[in-house]
Nucleic acid binder design. Structure first.
Lengths: 167, 167
DNA sequence: TCAAACTTTCAATAATTTTTGAAAGTTTAT
DNA sequence: ATAAACTTTCAAAAATTATTGAAAGTTTGA
């Protein structure tokens, strides 16, 4: 496998993984491209390399910036804007965990707390609803608390902790 | 919030979370419905409650069974088949983690190993490709190893471990 | 063996999501 | 103030994914 084959394989695999996890393909592929690029890339560069439109590129770069894993960079004396990705894998993981918690997990936890907190009328179906949503609430809340713990630690805490758990 | 409101809120929230994480809405909602149902449900029951077609119900029940989180149950003397979900939250988590690892994470790890293992021709772009995909490989591999550790422990290992980390 | 009761399959259709591209918007240099 | 260089927006189109429903398939009891 030469450079080009490896690059293309990485970009398409990352795009496919994104799709599987609810992230659109273009967004994941732009991230992959920037992740392995030693230099900042312009919008033109990205459009050209991934064969996608200007609008698509613009919208997905905005999303990546909203997620805090891609940044704008201006080269002095140039009108064009360039983009770079966060290059540290731990920081990438922290940022993704933080955003998914904030946008997706926390709102669900809130609903689980509300639902499991309804008044128990003593019927079997109400008992079961309360019992099962409470169990889910407790699991989700522990997992989320841990994720946020991770997010607020220094960058290599993850690795150290995982290593301790694994061995 | 009464029983019906709480039930509907739980089912639609679970469906929406599924969608966000790449799981189809019907599949997530069928799971939610079975999760809180004190009794096994027939295909008719599910179609009726969620207002979805027979075909859709059948296909998504199959997927839930493939994931190992829903089971068929036959009531003696009845022709119809009934369905129940795994009721233990830890077992649910283990099973989902195990399947996502097997189907989605492991294949990506394999690609990351291949890509990061290409011959280094000493160019800046090849250096960066290798360095960045290797970092991703190491993170993904640690995370996956931990997940599988979790999967192969007794059911309450997760809770104990999370508790240790959080406190 | 037949037929009733039930489930699965799958081609067609519908719904949703993504992508495009051109117009509108913005910034900067003169 | 103008225009060139660039980015963003958004309605329309395309692509993808989910859903339907009827035909085919299966199982069971008589």
């Amino acid at each position: 496998m030469n450079y080009t084959e490896a690059k293309d394989k990485f970009i398409s695999t990352w795009g496919a993984l994104g799709t599987l996890w609810g992230i659109n393909k273009a967004m994941a592929q732009i991230h992959a491209l920037l992740w392995i690029s030693p230099e900042p890339l312009s919008m033109e560069d990205i459009m050209e390399e991934l064969q996608i439109s200007r609008g698509n590129t613009s919208m997905n770069l905005r999303q990546l910036m909203d997620w805090g894993i891609v940044f704008k960079e201006s080269k002095p004396g140039e009108r064009k804007e360039y983009f770079v990705s966060e290059k540290d894998v731990q920081e990438l993981a922290r940022q993704v965990a933080k955003e998914r918690s904030r946008r997706e997990i926390k709102p669900v936890i809130k609903v689980l707390r509300e639902v499991s907190g309804i008044e128990d009328d003593g019927t079997k179906k109400t008992d079961e609803l309360i019992k099962q949503t409470k169990a889910l609430y407790e699991l989700a809340d522990s997992a989320d608390t841990m994720m946020n713990k991770v997010v607020n630690q220094e960058s290599n805490w993850i690795t150290k902790t995982l290593m301790k758990l694994i061995k």
